[in-house]
Design a protein around this nucleic acid. Sequence first.
DNA 1: TTGAAAGCGATACCAG
DNA 2: CTGGTATCGCTTTCAA
Lengths: 342, 342
Amino acid sequence: MSSKPTMRDVARKSGLSIATVSRVINFPADVPAETAKIVTAAMAYLNYRPNINGRRLKMTQTSTIGVLVPTLANPVFATSVQGIEQEANANGLTVILTSSEYDPEREMGAVSTLLNNRVDGLILTLANADNNPVVDLLLAEKIPFVLLFNQPSRADIAAISVDNAQSAYDMATAMIAKGHRSLAMVAGQFESSDRSRQRYDGFCRALDDAGIAQKHLVQVRFGETDLVAPLADFLCGPEEVTGLVCSTDMLAIAAISACRAHGLSVPDDVSVGGIDGISVGGLITPKLCSAVQPTQEMGQQALAFLRGLIKGQTNPQSLLLPHHLSDGDSIGDFRRRSSTLL
Amino acid sequence: MSSKPTMRDVARKSGLSIATVSRVINFPADVPAETAKIVTAAMAYLNYRPNINGRRLKMTQTSTIGVLVPTLANPVFATSVQGIEQEANANGLTVILTSSEYDPEREMGAVSTLLNNRVDGLILTLANADNNPVVDLLLAEKIPFVLLFNQPSRADIAAISVDNAQSAYDMATAMIAKGHRSLAMVAGQFESSDRSRQRYDGFCRALDDAGIAQKHLVQVRFGETDLVAPLADFLCGPEEVTGLVCSTDMLAIAAISACRAHGLSVPDDVSVGGIDGISVGGLITPKLCSAVQPTQEMGQQALAFLRGLIKGQTNPQSLLLPHHLSDGDSIGDFRRRSSTLL
DNA sequence: TTGAAAGCGATACCAG
DNA sequence: CTGGTATCGCTTTCAA
């Protein structure tokens, strides 16, 4: 009485068998409407609630998927998880959420938890997609998974991202075309973001192709949002630059604050470009340019892809979403997109 | 062989019983080091991974908690979930995530899913905390839960929030003190956010107390981020106002964009104030004022509170976090706080 | 210190 | 169309 009613209780109440109760829940079509009505009434009367854990134990599929992101404090990941959640909800899947806090060491633990839960598949954003023990484990255990935002070098791993190196290359090249000869890249730490490294590689290649030898790099620790000091040398010190290429929109926003703090007007005195999984944008004097790839949709895509893998209808494959440079205010777009109600 | 190893396999492999295996997993202290070593070796050899669903079925506690937020696309909720996740992780709890998309109709379904999962407790941000069937259900079934950001009128419901009405009152009052006589409130739809209504109430009270009869209200649909048209009447039309009080930081950001689009400089031509679960801030000419209550910590607090409820060590109680008006750039602070690495 | 065995709640096979 | 029953993997007495 005090404890929750089970199928057994419903069966007793309705004078039918537990097997029949199970049928009206799972295969209503296999049961006469009359019978179904009796059972349904009993369920309602008892306030019955199927215990999904019983089902999970019995079935091979758990209808559960695991998600691992660095942090939800970054809107890029948060909105992608929102997309995953939406798509999961539409397909009767339950989402278990974990985060690594950008710490590669914590990834394995988080994934272990997920696997102990016997998730049907995983969607992950890892610090480093290559040479990652988590990836090896998943591959070995043949658990379906798709990487989100990571761009692994192996092509037979399921992944959804933009071309990180190329997008940075394009942005730097565009800034160079506008006349900039002295550029700095603002990036996250490579250990906790392979995207950063890939984008930096693209940045360097662009400068090489333009015959610019001097490459500046400002690396920012995760969580660091005050770029006033880190950028001092470049904005008003000896290494004066005229343009910044930022690894992410969030860094670009922070960089803009720093520019203003140093008395520079953006984008008049300095140009700032931010790259994201969602957007490749540059503040290029005198107009800003950007292109937005909604991360929410990327999340939905990732789950759709994962569902295909789980059903065995699809093969793992790396998907590169197109990126564009176009006119518009990248940062403004970003902000506007994020602007929702509390 | 093809299927995952179970405790039975480990027992067989180690020549011990399944009960002993269970013991080394759950009560290592109750087992001789020698025995434990054998079992551990067998587990490693077999690549054993406990199936949490078996345990969940047997135990009354599932070590799982359910979370429901309107959306993760709003950084306020996303960071709070991040805080929950962090705290859960630190306590060996698994988080199941759902979202309502701001649709009150979807709340019950989401909570049902959570309850079917037999979560130990819930953390929820509801459209309306009062007269909510979800709350009634949870109360009736005696499932521990804590509301986050909601400020229910009943005091015996666990909740963590700021004083919505009072914070809006304070902000409006501060703006009036600066000389503003014509103010408008920018708020979300009341049906999907009781916070909005409570804040609007505070706004009205402030105007009443100041003897200002004219109260302007601009209500914005969820997802709407372009306030140029909605604010046209107030920013350059017949109803010219000199200050905007926004229900959330995100709305404030959108409002600022709209001001600029209308050729107004912020905060010279117009003042904008944003209220959030995290912050009560106003852009008050000539200086911005704000105070930040980190939502991430609110999430952590919520989970800590919930754990107390689950253990029966605490009683449900409504907690109001203090809010402040102080100097600083509310919007800038917000952005800086959000600025992390991809 | 260890093991046998009884469930936890649901699914699904196989008879009736 | 319906019901009995074995089973999923694990926890937890109760004996040995």
